[in-house]
């Protein structure tokens, strides 16, 4: 059986799944709109969590929170299920497909066979849609892929029951109840306010303060950790900025696209100019990644250059601080 589901490629998996599921249910919502209303933009430095033997950085909010906030703010109800038993998880999935209901799944990336090898890490917060089953194979719409693909039953079970941090435990979700008409205005304002609050949070590892903190750490890394580890950490910082499809701007371009769309919906000219500003900030992130890559490219043992990129990061932090203070007042 195959559900008449349209696959649209997106820059990021969670926005893409939400946007595609909304479109399937007859609501035209773009990826940036989901990202903005769901307050996806963030910066967070988690030195106490090690991913691939380096501290964790994130440029977006917790996995799952974008959909959660988006749904709440536009008045969509989502049903979520987690399972301890893989057989039960499969049965519930099959039941939904029988009912022509495509579902979103949280999966681990490591066993996604269609991903290139260097993306296959033990990262458990990827999202995709299952929209049918044919000859025992599940039809998969992975939003970051250009086209749809398939996974066998055992392959899907493996990724649904990946272990480690943020283990998906078969997590399955789909919207069940919709408002008659989608009221975006209030949701947009809430989304923007929330993002401003997060980015300006008085917490040393979050938002603008978090960026400044990392900049300080970067200056220390070569001495404290040795150049090899410092390079590894820097690579991690850029890899997280880049996940898949953020175009180098660490999600800043998607947010800028959202602001542009929001300025039309809210008839707010200021948001359009702020979108341009965010694009410029995204470009700064891109330049930062480019310069950082020059340092770790040669895997050299020299420790110069670290101070320069730390300064760059501080400039970004200051720009974002001014930006989000202004944005808070703009809505």
């Amino acid at each position: 059986m195959e559900i008449n589901f349209t696959h649209n490629q997106s820059a990021h998996c969670e926005n893409g799944v939400v946007s595609n599921l909304m479109k399937f249910n007859g609501f035209e919502v773009s990826e940036p709109m989901v990202f903005g209303i769901g307050s996806g933009l963030l910066f967070c430095y988690l030195p106490f969590i090690k991913v691939n033997h380096a501290p964790a950085f994130t440029y977006r909010s917790m996995p799952g929170s974008i959909f959660k906030r988006f749904a709440k703010r536009v008045g969509v109800k989502i049903k979520r299920e987690k399972f301890s038993n893989p057989k039960q998880a499969k049965a519930r999935l099959d039941e939904n497909l029988e009912k022509n209901n495509p579902v979103g799944l949280q999966v681990g990336v490591y066993n996604l066979t269609y991903f290139p090898d260097e993306y296959r890490f033990h990262f458990n917060a990827h999202n995709l849609v299952v929209y049918g089953k044919e000859n025992g194979n599940y039809l998969i719409s992975d939003p970051v892929m250009e086209t749809v693909t398939t996974l066998t039953e055992s392959e899907l079970e493996k990724v649904r029951f990946a272990k480690g941090a943020l283990a998906p435990k078969g997590h399955m979700y789909y919207p069940v109840d919709f408002p008659k008409e989608l009221q975006l205005e209030k949701a947009i304002v809430k989304g923007i306010k929330n993002t401003c609050k997060d980015m300006l949070a008085p917490v040393p590892i979050v938002g603008v303060k978090g960026i400044k903190f990392v900049a300080k750490q970067i200056r220390k890394w070569p001495k404290k950790k040795g150049v090899k580890v410092a390079n590894h950490y820097l690579g991690q910082l850029v890899r997280m900025q880049e996940e898949i499809g953020t175009g180098g701007g660490g999600f800043r371009y998607i947010f800028a696209a959202f602001l542009q769309e929001a300025s039309v919906v809210l008839k707010n000219e200021q948001l359009a100019s702020m979108s341009k500003e965010m694009t410029d900030i995204g470009d700064l992130w891109r330049d930062f990644a480019l310069d950082a890559s020059r340092i770790y490219k040669k895997r050299s043992k020299k420790s110069d250059g670290y101070n320069d990129i730390a300064t760059q990061l501080e400039t970004i932090a200051n720009r974002e601080e001014v930006f989000f203070k202004k944005l808070k007042k703009a809505v």
Binding site: H53, Q236, G248, S293
Partner: peptide, 17 residues
Amino acid sequence: STGWEPKTIALDNAMED
């Protein structure tokens, strides 16, 4: 996009590690 060099290098380095 077919890819971006700074990211490719970061990924390659991670694989080398």
